[in-house]
Write a protein that binds this DNA or RNA. Structure first.
Length: 406
DNA sequence: TCTGGGGTCCTAGGACCC
DNA sequence: TCTGGGGTCCTAGGACCC
């Protein structure tokens, strides 16, 4: 029956503080490489600095803030150790994200001679003592309820939601604070005079069926202590999609420049695909206008590919259909999906294996060069306008147009 | 809240088939 | 040419999460 949710507090910033004692007690943020805050320590949060805030704002608010690049390898190590501590108690551990886990602690009372609350607290203490970071822990009967509980008191909190106190907690929980309910759905429910989690839980099944879709029915059941979401111990398998998107400034309505941005994203998406030995059968591209509207289009390749030069033809066609110079664009993006192993590529009857092999060898060399001399050392000619812009920042060697070289 | 980047899942509606 | 009913596959787009 009982589940716990462990949520590390200000995880990235906490890891930095755990490693470097000089940072402790001070406002620390990570995200230097993206120019926005990825994580903010509680000292920084107190000043109103939270995720997503531009770093120049951080400097304005707090000139002495410590601003760091993200060290993902380090955080992964902390993450792994946190999960390992949980697994000392039970094998039923779900690594939900880098800083969160669910665990099913059913049946542990007798062997450990402790109540479930005491078990949860001892897990929490072990993590905090051994890793030097704090975590907040929630104990309840379903995942949705444990998420409410772990969020209740932060940092370093422990909260139990039981059969008896559940109504009190739900009455004080707004719809948007529920896992899986965002602004849109909250506003929609408000129309039916449902304003908090308790009113939602109390709504009739008939109402839920008629007015909401499947995910919201599941949340409703979980709020009523019915276990719908299971703790999944298996590791997340391969990607279903790989996306790359980049905002550029200033925004532009110049076709060549916007297309170059898109071209870079296509290249980057395929770099990632090749690193994971994946090839894509489909690709979706989008343009984001300055007023945050999206125009999207999907294209399908003749065969699965992991090479951007094969994708650029269809990408260009789609781009021309989407693009209009009467709009100003601030970002482009690409998502490749229908992924499969690049080594089991199904050859179309009409393909010329020789050409494919040549392209494969070219990109082997490209990936090799990138490893030796840094990312983006070789790129498509269509990406040139973007790369020239970055030229001042970085030394590089560019092949004028790889696509034509093949 | 003048707003970054990387993901997942679900659904409505059209195309196509029997 | 229009009429029914049902299944499946695909695409566009919405909503949400970390």
């Amino acid at each position: 029956m009982p589940l716990i949710h462990v949520d590390a507090d200000a995880f990235f910033a906490s890891c930095e503080q755990a490693i470097n004692p000089a940072y402790r007690g001070k406002p620390v943020v990570t995200g230097l490489e993206r120019k926005i805050v990825s994580a903010a320590s509680y000292e920084a949060k107190k000043l109103g600095i939270k995720r997503g805030v531009p770093l120049w704002d951080v400097k304005k608010i707090c000139p002495e803030a410590i601003i760091l690049p993200s060290h993902y390898e380090t955080y992964s190590l902390f993450s792994k150790r946190m999960f390992d501590i949980l697994r000392r108690y039970t094998s039923q551990v779900e690594e939900y994200s880098i800083d969160e886990a669910f665990a099913d602690i059913t049946g542990l009372r007798r062997p450990l001679h402790k109540s479930y609350a005491q078990i949860a607290i001892s897990v929490k203490n072990a993590i905090e003592k051994e890793l030097g970071i704090t975590v907040s822990v929630g104990l309840a009967s379903t995942k949705v309820l444990t998420k409410i509980a772990s969020k209740w008191k932060k940092p370093s909190g422990f909260t139990e939601i039981s059969y008896y106190n559940r109504p009190d907690f739900l009455k004080k929980t707004s719809l948007e604070d529920l896992w899986g309910i965002g602004r849109q759905t909250a506003a929609y429910l408000n129309k039916f005079r449902v304003y908090n989690a308790w009113q939602y839980a109390q709504a009739s099944e008939d109402f839920i069926d008629k007015k909401l879709s499947k995910p919201y029915k599941e949340i409703w059941r979980e709020l009523n202590e019915e276990r719908v979401y299971q703790v999944s111990t298996q590791e997340k398998d391969e990607y279903k999609s790989i996306g790359k998107t980049k905002t550029f400034s200033p925004p532009s309505s110049e076709a060549q420049y916007v297309f170059a941005q898109l071209s870079k994203n296509v290249e980057n998406a395929f770099i990632k695909a090749r690193r994971h030995n994946l090839a894509a059968k489909k690709m979706m591209i989008f343009l984001k206008t300055n007023d945050f509207r999206y125009r999207t289009m999907e294209v399908r390749f003749n065969r699965a590919t992991c090479f951007p030069n094969e994708a650029m033809g269809p990408a260009k066609q789609a781009f021309l259909k989407l693009f209009s110079s009467s709009f100003v664009y601030r970002a482009t993006g690409v998502v490749i999906f229908s992924l499969q192993s690049r080594f089991s590529l199904q050859m179309n009857l009409f393909e010329k294996p020789l050409t494919i092999e040549k392209i494969g060898r070219v990109y082997e060399a490209v990936d090799d060069l990138s490893q030796k001399y840094g990312k983006h050392i070789v790129f498509l000619g269509s990406s040139l306008p973007v790369m020239e812009k970055q030229k001042k920042e970085r030394q590089f060697i560019g092949l004028p147009c790889l696509g034509q070289a093949t």
